[in-house]
Every structure is written in structure tokens, then in C-alpha cells.
Design a protein around this nucleic acid. Structure first.
Lengths: 331, 331
DNA sequence: AACGTTGACGTCAGCGTTGACGTAAGAGGG
DNA sequence: CCCTCTTACGTCAACGCTGACGTCAACGTT
């Protein structure tokens, strides 16, 4: 079977031979260093163009012990939150000419370990990671081994790690205030099965409700539509008085809404529904879903900016992006 | 400004020194070659474990002139079709221990060029590409330079290229048959602004309708929800007799449905709506959308399988996956 | 006993690049 | 005219790994 037919890629040596200089000089021109005349520069560039020379990034990465590539690791991809985040990461990365390794862990710690190891083996410059590592020991170990990381919606105190998060405490507070303002008195929250440090939504909601003198029923469930539906059905069976459900993400909110409607109740008249993330879906279902809007693309861009800072040697401030409650029909 | 704190990674030489053999022997063990005793193997593996040795994939890629990494390039990511495809690609890739470069082109040919060049500079083994290159000259040029590619839903006759597609001609035929069966006589199709060779949906629909003696109104529009909405509004204004709209993808179908409803018409009583792809959204809107279901994850897995074949030297058969019409409320 | 064969290693070079350092020619200063 | 400095290069080694090939002891064969 024929191997890939390919005109062998031109190297520095080929370019150098063509111009009649040493490879080192070509390297200098290509990398924008100094130490060559304008005339030489022109001739080198012409040869680069003619031979369609492109630096071998593996060789460069090998001596520099770090490639220009970064990793992007997320837990799932069927929640539109993540594609939107990925778009921001990709766009910002491209603007800086960076190539990106990509992996979905399916919330499996073993997979997370595998992909981070693999990325390290490729000498990535750093990684943007959305992890659900419960104790952060794994992340800490990678950081100890020298992997620089930007954690999305998570924090870890380590010189190789910085953080980009979302002000979900405030978002949840806004939700609570809104629900109280529209007269709800028996709210429930479907919180995600995330690590406790990621439960700012839960704290913001319950603490604000408590301040209003309103008790909250809380359930911890999987972050999927199906889990939201099942949980809401049980919730309503056990607590028929519930008149508002705040879900950790929009998919769960949609699931909850279906459960509510399946019991013959009306949204929002009988039960108000509020989601979180502001994915496109929330606009198009009936009734449309009130949600905490997160600028996911901006979150991705910010993560890239922080990573570039981190890998260039400085220590970026943790970022916390603001959120906005978008009131629609469901609450 | 501290550089990344890192315990220098162990190399073959470190492992060899620890065991008391040559690096070449360690390499042999690590790569599962032959030529060492079982006792040596044990000792090497123990040292590998103890030093947490991981091969430097840049160095390996440099000598082999090809890394174990492959590229995955798509045009957009806000259409859930692509995340689902990505999930299949990622999962299958991971099963084979492959790391994946990822890029979104936003249908910009310049970006497509940039990312493919960048990936080639990283000596990727091959790429899975969903392109909208109108004339395929760019793809052909990359193939000529030696890049092995699997095209998704596209074909190109070149020894370095193979293809994984979807039987959308048949899908469109099923749609046409169904619409005729439920008594529609004035169908329209919102086709995408894709290259002609990707218009099998259009041909399948019109040819089948023609066979039924039914004329078809056709519009070519952008593959987005918004474009679908605008196009359907115009269509209904100019052709109020239209009683069925088949859209190239589900997002356009949803846009069309909104336009229909905005004119006071009812779906499906006044106008039937059929989409394509079978994204989750179609189940949850009201009315739920009849659509051609594509197994996107399988498509992704298949693409990986073909790429692995292609890069290992054989010439995989073009694959065409079957589709299934899922009849819901909208038609 | 001489000889080929096999297994289990080791040696060496080189993939393409860049860091560190060397050098020769010209400019500028005293 | 000598000395120093700068500019514009070139040389060499090394990054970590593996392909090609060499070596040496143990074994089996005639």
C-alpha cells in the first residue's frame, strides 16, 4: 500500500542552500531576530516563499522544550455551554497563532488524567481546563510537574495555576431576589453534582432566600436534561407546594420544565422555572426560559488571555466575569 | 515573573541510567519491540514507573516525521451537529490513544488555510476535515503536499484523501415521499449555501417531488437559524400557497417554523416543517420538528476509523452512512 | 572442533531547529 | 595606525528519540 505521496517538506537547510547562507541565518530571519542585512532578509524571504518553507514545529518545540500549542479540556460537549466556550477559546487562540489540543473527559477522572498526560507528553505550553476533579489532588500534581493551567470556573492556589470564573453567587442572588419579587414562597434548587467549591450558585440562592426568610428545598443531581426531569418529577411528588425551581444549568431547567408540564401544571403560573447559562435553546422553547446569562465566548477569550500571560511568566489576576439575569416567560 | 516551576521530565537516558542499560534498550521496551529479556523488561518498567517517565512525543515525532496527533477541522460550532460529531471523533480518537488538534474555521477559507498549514507544521498524521472550500483546489493542494485527510460529507479523488458521508439523497427522498403521503402539494426547500457537490439533499428532494409530479420552490440561504427565519418569511410573502418547508438543517427549520408562526399560520396544519440532522433541539420545541436523523457520533467514529486506515497505508472505501426520517409533530 | 544462528543487548548518527559562541570585515575614535 | 566596537554572519552542539548496524555470548549442528 502506497505511503502518503508527498513532496518532502523544505527545511532550513534547503532554504539556506538556495540563498547561499547558513541555516542559522535563515532561522534568524524566520524568527525575526536581528543580525542580518536587509538584502539578505529579502533573499531569504523570497526563498522561503518559493520553497513554501514552514518551520518544523516539532523540532522547534523539542529544543525549546515547549511547543506553541495549548490544551483545552472540558467535561462534556452535549451541553451547548461548552461549544460556546470553545468558540471563544479557539478564536482567541487563533488570533495569537496558537494551535489547540482538544479533549472531552466525559467527567471521567481517568480520562482527564490520560488527556492531560498526553498533552504534557506533547510539551504543550499550557492548558485551559474545566475540571470536575473532586479533591484537586490530580490538578495539583500536574501543576507540580510543571504544567501551567488556567482553570475555568474553579480555583487552585499554585504558582502554575490561575483562574477564570463567573460570578454565579451574584447570579443566584439575582434569581432569588426575582423569584421573591414575583411572589414565590416555596422555591427549590436543583444543584449539580459538582465539587463543593463549585457550588456558589447554591450558596448564593439559599443565602439570599434565607435573608428573605424563605426556606429552600435542595436536590443534588446530574447536570443533564434527563436528570433534571427525573429530579423535578420526584421533587413535585414529595413537595407539591413547590412553586419555583432554579436549576444549575439550562438543560436541567428544560428537563424540570417538562416534568412540571407532565404533571399537568403550568409554567410559570404554577411553577416558575429558572435556568443558568443562557444557551440558545432557552429562547426557543415554550415558554421561553428565564436564565442567568453567561457570556461564554468572552469566558473562553479571557481564559486564553490569562493563559498567555501565565505562560509568558507573569502571574495573572484571577478573573470573575459578571452575569446577567435574563427574564423570559418561565419566571 | 518566575518561570513555570517544574521538575525536569525524565528521559530515556534517566531511565537507562537507573536500570543500568542503554537508552536504546529502554526505548525498545517502551515501544514494545523485541530484543530484551523478561527480567530487563521488568526492571525497565519499574524504573519507568518510578521516574514517571513519559516519552517526549515531539522528539519521537521529529524522527518519525509524523506525530501521533491528528487534526479535526470544522466550519462552525454553534450548530449542535458539530459538537456531536466532535464527540464521536474525540471518543474514537481517545480509544486509540490519539491526541487531537481542533479548529473552527467559521467558514472562512483563509482561516481554513491557516489552521491546516499550522497543523501540517506540527507534522500531524492526518486530518478529519469538514470543509466548505468551493472549488476544492485548496484541499487538493494540501493533499498534494502530503496531508492525508478524511473529508466529512464531501469527496475528492486523490490518493491522500478519503471520504465519510451521509446518504442525504435518500433522506431527502424520504422527506419528499412523506410530505406527498400527508397530502402536501406546494413544497418549498431552503437549501444551504454549500458547494453544489454537497447539494444531495436538494437533488433528492426535487427529483423525488418531480417523480410525484409536484413542483418545488427552492431558495438558497445561509445555514443559520436567523437566515432560515428571514428566508421563510420572504417565501411565504411571495408564495402564500406554500404548505411545506424542508430545510437543510434543523436550525434553519426552527427559524422557518418561527417565521410561519409569526404570520399567524399553524405548524403543521397550514405549513409542514421538516429539518435535517436530528439535533436535540428538535424534540423540545413546540411543535416538535420532523427531521432526518443523522447519527453524528457514529459519523465521527467512522471518520476516525477511516483516517487510521488511511494513515496506516491502506486506501479505505468511501463510507456512506444511512439516515432515518423521524416523524414528529411538525410534519 | 569449527561453524552458523539466535538472542540480547550496545553504538552511532541524525531528525530540524536554535542557544552559545566564534570570527572577519568595516566603522569610529584617539 | 592601532584599538575597540558593532554588524553580519558561520560553527557546533544539543534537544530526546529511534533506525541501522555492530558485537558478543550461548546454543545447536555436522
Amino acid at each position: 500500500m502506497a505511503a502518503a505521496h508527498s513532496a518532502a517538506r523544505a527545511t532550513l537547510i534547503d532554504v539556506a542552500a538556495k540563498v547561499g547562507v547558513s541555516p542559522r541565518t535563515v532561522s534568524r530571519v524566520v524568527n525575526g531576530e536581528t543580525g542580518f542585512s536587509e538584502a539578505t532578509r529579502q533573499r531569504v524571504l523570497a526563498a522561503v516563499d518559493e520553497l513554501d518553507y514552514q518551520p518544523n514545529l516539532l523540532a522547534r518545540g523539542l529544543i525549546r522544550n515547549s511547543s506553541d500549542t495549548f490544551g483545552f479540556v472540558i467535561t462534556m460537549i452535549d451541553d451547548p455551554f461548552f461549544p460556546d466556550l470553545a468558540l471563544g477559546v479557539q478564536t482567541a487562540g487563533l488570533e495569537h497563532g496558537r494551535t489547540m489540543f482538544f479533549a472531552v473527559t466525559n467527567r471521567d477522572p481517568a480520562v482527564e488524567e490520560q488527556v492531560l498526560r498526553s498533552m504534557m507528553a506533547h510539551s504543550i505550553a499550557g492548558a485551559i481546563v474545566f475540571s470536575e476533579d473532586h479533591d484537586q489532588s490530580k490538578l495539583a500534581r500536574f501543576a507540580d510537574r510543571g504544567l501551567q493551567m488556567v482553570l475555568v470556573d474553579d480555583v487552585l492556589d499554585h504558582p502554575n495555576v490561575c483562574s477564570v470564573s463567573i460570578d454565579l453567587y451574584d447570579g443566584a442572588r439575582q434569581v432569588a431576589d426575582h423569584l421573591v419579587a414575583v411572589g414565590r414562597t416555596n422555591p427549590a434548587i436543583l444543584s449539580g453534582s459538582s465539587p463543593p467549591r463549585k457550588q456558589r450558585r447554591l450558596r448564593g440562592f439559599t443565602e439570599t432566600m434565607t435573608a428573605h426568610g424563605v426556606p429552600v428545598i435542595s436536590r443534588s443531581v446530574d447536570l443533564t436534561l434527563e436528570a433534571g426531569e427525573v429530579a423535578a418529577r420526584q421533587l413535585l411528588a414529595e413537595h407539591p407546594e413547590v412553586d419555583a425551581i432554579f436549576a444549575f444549568n439550562d438543560l436541567m431547567a428544560l428537563g424540570a420544565m417538562r416534568a412540571v408540564q407532565a404533571t399537568g401544571r403550568t409554567v410559570p403560573d404554577d411553577v416558575a422555572i429558572v435556568g443558568c447559562d443562557g444557551i440558545q435553546l432557552t429562547e426557543f422553547v415554550n415558554p421561553s426560559i428565564t436564565t442567568i446569562h453567561i457570556d461564554r465566548e468572552r469566558l473562553g477569550r479571557t481564559a486564553v488571555a490569562s493563559l498567555l500571560e501565565l505562560t509568558s511568566g507573569s502571574n495573572p489576576e484571577p478573573v470573575v466575569l459578571p452575569v446577567e439575569l435574563v427574564v423570559r416567560e418561565s419566571a
